[in-house]
């Protein structure tokens, strides 16, 4: 850091471009170190994203030469596509519930178990983390809430006299959303959770000592004034994870309720996107959906970033 400070004095003698060039030459090793990652990243992420954004203004369908159609795809989405509006509604309901709940749950559990003895902590971490690491294990809910009498929930509700007819859990519009939300929460203690645990272990212990001297009275104050502010980068990382997974969800619904879900009651933007992009090959139209989802997620990210900057104040 001291190097840049001394440079800043001589900076006045140079134009901005000259100074930038000088800094670039001095720190060339930085570019060398990001190069392997950046090359792959540009090839497989940046370029395709830019291409998709351009394609969203065309009628590309893999068969004919694409024509430029301006914002027609976007107009069609909002004015002509009733299912898309259902998808937006469902996505917001889902993301609005699962995103914040899974985020808070991940943080609270990580924070609670951080105080346990290392051996017990490892075991408890495993119990909470296992559902999300195990890939498709959530399909077990299909068996637990199976629509016939062999489903665990139906069998016991019947046995205990709460219901007389089996409930067709995943084909009844009243139950699909709540169940999918429950299953998503069940396997939502994932990467964000792990990064919180790791982040908590990296908090400088001497800060707690200092805090106790400065009058931090209980664990909640300690959390708010010391722990949370020292792990803001992890909080931001967890937020991005929650946003991308809660807005991009869909595979749980497909596995449990079939595709499409009954009356589109759990149909989300991702489903709509996969439907047009993956099944109908209307790439232009599906790119427009992706751009809208992109915009929504960036907005959510901005919002969360503002919230996190208020932590500890």
């Amino acid at each position: 850091m001291s190097k840049t400070a001394t440079k800043a004095v001589s900076r006045k003698d140079m134009t901005r471009a000259q100074w930038t060039w000088k800094e670039m030459k001095k720190n060339w090793v930085g570019y060398a170190m990001i190069a392997p990652f950046i090359i792959v990243f540009i090839m497989f992420t940046v370029a395709p994203v830019l291409v998709s954004i351009v394609v969203s203004f065309t009628d590309f369908n893999m068969l004919q030469v694409p024509n430029f159609v301006g914002v027609d795809n976007y107009i069609r989405l909002f004015l002509d596509d009733d299912i898309f509006l259902i998808a937006i509604k469902n996505t917001f309901i889902f993301a609005g519930i699962v995103g914040p709940s899974s985020y808070l749950m991940s943080y609270m559990v990580a924070w609670f178990i951080n105080e346990l003895e290392p051996k017990i902590r490892a075991l408890v971490t495993l119990i909470f983390y296992a559902p999300s690491i195990s890939g498709g294990i959530y399909t077990i809910f299909g068996t637990l809430f199976s629509g016939d009498a062999y489903g665990w929930a139906n069998a016991w509700l019947k046995q205990l006299g709460f219901i007389t007819e089996e409930i067709n859990w995943f084909e009844d519009a009243d139950y699909v959303m709540p169940l999918c939300i429950m299953v998503s929460l069940w396997c939502s203690l994932g990467t964000a959770f792990l990064s919180f645990i790791a982040g908590l272990q990296g908090v400088d212990r001497s800060l707690y000592e200092a805090g106790a001297v400065d009058g931090v009275r209980n664990r909640w104050q300690e959390l708010w004034y010391i722990t949370l502010p020292s792990m803001k980068p992890q909080l931001m990382f967890g937020a991005i994870m929650s946003i991308t997974s809660s807005f991009g969800y869909g595979s749980i619904v497909d596995a449990l309720c079939g595709n499409p879900s009954v009356d589109y009651c759990a149909w989300t933007i991702t489903h709509h996107l996969n439907d047009y992009g993956g099944s109908r090959y209307e790439i232009g139209y599906s790119s427009a959906i992706a751009v809208i989802l992109f915009g929504i997620m960036i907005g959510a990210n901005k919002l969360v970033k503002n919230l996190i900057s208020k932590v500890g104040k």
Binding site: F41, M43, F44, T45, V46, A47, P48, V49, V51, S52, M62, I240, I243, T244, G248, T270, L273, N274, G277, G278, I283, S286, S287, I289, A290, L293, F294, M297, I298, N301
Partner: peptide
Amino acid sequence: RTSLMFHKTCTAVSNFIL
């Protein structure tokens, strides 16, 4: 960071061509 928010399905076609 921004690129994390882009859905994979739409980049699949350009990725395939590349």
